[in-house]
């Protein structure tokens, strides 16, 4: 997004000479940053900070047998 703004400014500066207008620039979704944010939150929620497996407390549910 910041990149987009910078690009826009650069185009404006050049605009005086080249008569290229600043077209609306879409702000793309920052997928990599979102992934990083998701991972940080998942670490927090699952308590994975030390790489430890999340501790399953016994809430009275019997771990059923798996297929």
């Amino acid at each position: 997004m910041t990149m987009a703004k910078l690009a826009c400014r650069a185009v404006l500066l050049a605009g005086a000479l080249t008569l290229v207008g600043c077209v609306t620039i879409n702000i793309y979704f920052p997928a990599a940053a979102a992934e990083k944010a998701a991972d940080r939150i998942i670490d927090e929620v699952w308590q994975l900070k030390n790489g430890a497996a999340p501790k399953a407390e016994e809430p009275g549910t019997a771990p059923g047998d798996k297929k």
């Binding site: 929620v45 999340p54 501790k55 399953a56 407390e57």
Partner: peptide, 20 residues
């Protein structure tokens, strides 16, 4: 929200484990 989900996770984890 993170706190609330973290508190719930201990219960959910055993349900993930059991495949429920």
């Amino acid at each position: 929200l993170q706190r609330s989900m973290q508190q719930r996770h201990s219960q959910l984890a055993s349900l993930y484990n059991s495949g429920a």
